[in-house]
Design a protein around this nucleic acid. Structure first.
Lengths: 254, 254
DNA sequence: CCACATTCTCGTACGTCGTACGAGAATAGC
DNA sequence: GCTATTCTCGTACGACGTACGAGAATGTGG
């Protein structure tokens, strides 16, 4: 095995997503053999368009192939498997976050802006929360945005690991929140579903064993826009972030 | 169609999870016809055991059926589809959160205890974060625990909707965090994978375009136990929670 | 005791998925 | 041109969720 220098997009063998560099560090060297008829970029874009239009479940290898005008198995020359294609999709749309707006220097404001951009991206690509919870992507665009977020946290007296944690916390929150936000919006489409659920909750609340739930549901309920709700959550989270360096390291097993 | 009074566990027809009450409010009335050979409980327990042992992907209708000693299609007498079975699984393990420990009255401490119990449950059932991000379950056990969490928030001057939001925020955080925690632990199993990723990140950080990332990775890096990291996150989140009632309601469309 | 309606069991079968395999077409260097 | 290399993609396989419907078991009314 002559240790080929540099990897092709395809490279049929190899574990699913075993080595990130195999996926992201590919200077597409090969200048021999048949000329590729498609491109990783085009295939990824087709997959994204499909997911935008018909949801993540509609992204099948067959459907993507049909959309780019390729045979199904040709896709495997550009991505070793579907999981990799999904990672490519995530990084592809993350490119829409770049270049990021300049920082203002107020780390709280900058962090909130980061979260708002993430949310906007997810609303534009409603499959994104689901795609993000199932994997962790470290592509060029995702990393560039991470770089930006870390720059926003520069004024904070935290060490590097803690800043990464804060970013992870924020991203997790946005993903989770927007995921639920979209789920709710989708349910509203079928009114009976939402009504049935409300009915059911009312039934449960009325059984006497859930007084707090009953109280919560009986709230005056001034309805907020999703934007306002998100902002309120975000404020709660960011304004209150404990920014002290953190306690002394705990001993493993302690 | 004679409007049958009360629904059987089975009830073959009916949309997937259209009506929560169809699923959760079933006093298993039917005392006619052949006696059921299995039970929803036993099937759910088998599915949970399978997921605990071999992961969520191993939970196929065929595998669950084999485990309980039933024919595959018999499962459909107890749950209308696989999605429902997954909801039953989530509620089943949520029963381990009950009865909850008594509240101490300090809402921050009580809320942290809620989160810690959630995390412990997820560590016991590593498939749970993935199962939770894909659906929202409103079974008896989940709702009982929600009731407990709302009781913990009793001292807060928030309205009902806001308290539900806080719970959702907390649950979303725990789910996301433990999901990543487990993913990292799984990667450590295969050391090359983790090493390759670290290598890749180092490569990226060394390219000069990611100074903040380089700084973050070069941190002294006193390693924390997962417990300590979780606690630090949780403290950051809960200690800082903005508990003011919130701004005036925004007008829809504003 | 006997239909008969009801309810459960589950073998078979269908359509869909991801993808392994490998034959053929295109290209570059000799 | 010959050959090694690379890409294309038809076919095929095993797994999945689940629709269908025949058969077995049970209660009730005659």
């Amino acid at each position: 095995m002559p240790a080929s220098p540099g990897d092709r997009p395809g490279d049929r063998p190899g574990a699913p997503g075993a080595d990130p560099r195999r996926l992201w560090l590919t200077p597409d060297r090969p200048r021999r053999g048949r000329r590729p008829a498609f491109s990783r970029e085009a295939i990824t874009a087709a997959a994204v368009a499909l997911a935008d239009a018909e949801g993540l479940d509609a992204v099948t290898m067959r459907a993507v192939a049909a959309r780019v005008g390729a045979g199904v198995m040709s896709l495997y020359s550009y991505a070793p498997d579907k999981e990799t294609l999904l990672e490519l999709m995530v990084d592809h749309v993350s490119g829409e976050l770049l270049p990021p707006a300049p920082l203002c220097g107020d780390w709280r404001a900058d962090l909130k802006a980061v979260a708002r951009h993430q949310r906007a991206l997810m609303l534009r690509h409603p499959w994104l929360p689901a795609a993000l919870t199932a994997r962790r992507t470290l592509g060029p665009h995702t990393l560039a945005f991470l770089e930006h977020a870390l720059a926003a946290l520069r004024p904070l007296p935290l060490d590097g690991a803690a800043k990464l944690e804060v970013f992870s916390l924020l991203t997790g929150f946005v993903t989770s929140h927007v995921g639920h936000e979209l789920a709710r919006a989708a349910t509203v489409d079928s009114v009976d579903r939402a009504a049935a659920e409300a009915d059911y909750l009312a039934t449960v609340a009325a059984d006497g064993h859930h007084p707090e739930l009953a109280r919560a549901l009986a709230a005056p309920g001034r309805p907020l826009t999703p934007e306002a709700t998100f902002t309120r959550f975000l404020d709660r989270l960011v304004d209150g972030l404990d920014t002290r360096p953190g306690p002394e390291a705990a001993r493993p097993g302690g």
